[in-house]
């Protein structure tokens, strides 16, 4: 698959300095505070972070689905060179579900409970393409078959409550793929599923992307999931991307102390019998972030310089980190030894 961009291919999506803030009565919540990332055609980007790190809000911002009191206050989102932050409502609507699709976290909630599966699929086709109902229905059937749903014809006539959670998520994925989009934003689509179903869905999503050349942003809090799926990873903390790079590089040699903490928190990384490693403290309130580096207060290797906000720095080809005192390469190779 495509490696780090060389400037030769135009990225499918390029987000630059995106800031999405929520203006609540209690104060301004800086959910996304300067996110930059890009996805190349056919590439899978894993967007990793804890709850509240702003990864889902980033996804919704791309589709223009931020509701008041939230809004995009700064930055640019370019889809194939087209600026989306200033696009009209109709322009965005015609992209949504057609060129950029989204898969949600909880399959129990995403399908409308009172509409049949075929209704919900056919409308997705017909809102974007002038095709007959029969043709749209045929595409829906094909899309269901594509995501590995047995006897798609009869599933089309089902209501969501007649399907299992895994089946519903497959339907949602089929809806996302039905118009052969250029980009799919998947917001933790396997979190609510059984592990076995999770593995199947991951494999299918990966295969579908490879087959159709669709790029994907896979949002998750689970590093284990993306490490087997994504080409590149972007780690988010408190509304910012703190580290990006090729999946193998980030997972095997994390440079940001937060990324290292995340990796150490995965139980399989620990020797049997030893205490699970954890990141001390908790995600800071987005209304009241520490000055300078937001991770400073939980970081074991914070230095005086961290009182200033660290800029993102390129430390290798396609490899960036937002830290004044990154984890040394040798040190990060033996992650078990660190506290």
């Amino acid at each position: 698959m495509t490696g780090p961009d060389q400037g030769a291919t135009e990225p499918t999506l390029a987000v630059d300095g995106l800031k999405t803030h929520f203006f609540t009565k209690a104060g301004v919540v800086k959910a996304v505070d300067g996110v930059s990332l890009h996805v190349n055609p056919g590439e899978i980007l894993g967007l990793v972070g804890e709850s509240g790190s702003g990864k889902s809000i980033t996804g919704f911002s791309i589709l223009g689905l931020i509701d008041p009191p939230g809004r995009i206050v700064e930055g640019s989102i370019r889809y194939k060179g087209r600026e989306l932050t200033t696009a009209s409502y109709e322009e965005l609507r015609s992209l949504r579900g057609d060129r950029i699709a989204m898969i949600f976290q909880d399959p129990m909630m995403t399908l409308n409970p009172v509409l049949r599966v075929d209704t919900q699929m056919i409308e997705t086709v017909r809102v974007h393409h002038r095709v007959s109902k029969a043709e749209a229905r045929e595409r829906a059937r094909a899309a269901l078959a594509e995501v590995g749903i047995p006897s798609p014809e009869s599933r089309l006539k089902n209501y969501p409550h007649e399907l299992s959670g895994g089946m519903r998520q497959r339907v949602a994925i089929a809806i996302a793929f039905i118009n052969k989009p250029d980009l799919i934003i998947a917001d933790e689509p396997t979190t609510a599923l059984d592990v076995t179903i999770q593995a199947q869905i991951l494999a299918e999503a990966q295969a579908l992307c490879a087959r159709t050349g669709t790029a994907m942003i896979w949002i998750t809090h689970d590093l284990a999931v993306v490490s087997s799926l994504a080409d590149r990873i972007a780690v988010m903390y408190a509304g910012r991307v703190v580290e990006t790079g090729r999946t193998a590089d980030v997972v095997n040699a994390p440079r940001h102390p937060y990324t290292r903490g995340l990796i150490n928190s995965v139980p399989s990384h620990n020797a049997r019998g030893s205490r699970l490693a954890q990141i001390p403290g908790m995600t800071p309130s987005l209304m009241n972030l520490p000055k300078g580096c937001a991770f400073r207060t939980r970081c074991s290797q914070a230095i005086d310089a961290c009182l200033e906000a660290p800029p993102i720095r390129e430390i290798g080809p396609g490899r960036e980190v937002r830290c004044f005192n990154p984890v040394a390469v040798a040190q990060s190779a033996t992650v078990e030894a660190t506290p």
């Binding site: 689905l65 699709a101 949600f104 409308n112 809806i175």
Partner: peptide
């Protein structure tokens, strides 16, 4: 979510 999903599908 189903309303947000419908919006994400581009439904009018």
């Amino acid at each position: 979510d189903y309303i947000k999903f419908a919006r994400a599908k581009g439904i009018s």
